[in-house]
Each structure stands twice: as structure tokens, then as C-alpha cells.
Amino acid sequence: NAIRLAGDMSHMASFFVLLFKINKSKSVAGISLKTQELYVLVFCTRYVDIFWNHLSLYNSLMKVIFIALSVMIVYVMRRGVPQRSTYNPELDSFPHHWLVLPCVLLGVAINQDPTSPFEMAWAFSIYLEAVAIMPQLHMVQKHGEAENLTSHYIFLLGLYRVFYLVNWVYRYMTEDGYWQAIVWVSGAVQAVLYLDFFYNYVKSKQKD
């Protein structure tokens, strides 16, 4: 449906905005490497089914694109010259292990098929995605204010989440028996994390 497509497009746009920013400014200052590495982990654990689930060309292609773009971002941040010298590890200080560990435990404990390692990995990726933005938001707070393109990037990620939430309401109403508790609760948590950022983003845009 169109709402979900809008969500996927804003999600993909967020990758391109970030890649554009780090290529054009030659700097990754203010970007959390931890958040970007968590996203690589999120996509690699969620899309292992790329090898056996062929739902549509769109679905498979987008999975490849999301993995490739997230890996590319981490690669530029770690290896890019001069980008790698502009990274601020002292500001990227969120204790991310405390995000991963509970998500592993939750993924093993709460999933749709306790006999399937794939379902555990899949649930883990849903839980981790919900909180993966936290190191980035933490960094923005420490910095005081995010650069324009960085804030557009975070805004697009939040927008993607909002579109998905609306899409789930739409699917619940139009598809008989469509019900995804794990995804909905995690998605709602994820959206809540953006509220404060959204508020400040809109406020600063009004000032401009």
C-alpha cells in the first residue's frame, strides 16, 4: 500500500541524505558510528531470509539495498579518508552493549516460533531497531544541536516509523486477521523515542 511505500521511501531517503552529507562535507562529526553499526546488525539479522523468501522483486531488492547502504555508511565512517579522522568517539559514548544484550534475550524469549533460530534473529532485529537510534540521539544532545543534514537524516528515520505505524492501522482494518504484536509494540516504542527530537526539529524549522 501507498503508506508503507512512503515509509520505505523515507527510510531509503534517510540513507542517501546521510551518505550525501558525509561525502559532501567530508566529515562524520556528529554522526554516531554505534547507531550505524547497530543498523548493519539489524538488517543482517532480519534479512537472512533473502536466501529463501522471495515475496517480490521489490522486497528482495530493498533488502539488498538496505544492507548495502548501511554497510557503505559504516565503511566510510571507519575507513573513509578524511572522514574517519572526523569521527568523535568521545561524544559517541552511549553504552550500546546495554541495548544489544537485552534485545538478544528478548529475541530468544519472545518470538513467533521458539523452535526457529531465524524467528529469534528476526525478533531480535525488530527489538534492536526500536532502540538503535539512541546512541545518535544521545550524541545530538551532547553536541547541543545537530547539523542541518544530520537532523534531516534523523527526521526521515522518524518519518519512516510514523508511516509504518499508520500502515499497520490500515492493514489491521483492511486485511482480515492481520495482527503483529511484536512489530507493533516495538514500532510504537521506536516512534516514542523520536518525539522529543521531532518537537525540537519542528521548532527550529519554524525559527528558520
Binding site: 508503507r4 520505505d8 527510510h11 531470509d49 523468501n53 515475496l55 517480490s56 522486497n59 530493498m62 533488502k63 538496505f66 513467533q112 516460533d113 528476526w122 509504518y164 500502515n167 486485511e175 486477521g177 492481520y178 503483529q180 512489530v183
Partner: peptide, 10 residues
Amino acid sequence: GETDAKKDEL
């Protein structure tokens, strides 16, 4: 199947 309905999303 029903449990896989979610996997059509990204």
C-alpha cells in the same frame, strides 16, 4: 502463511 504476513514488510 499467516505467521509470515509480516515478512513482506521491511
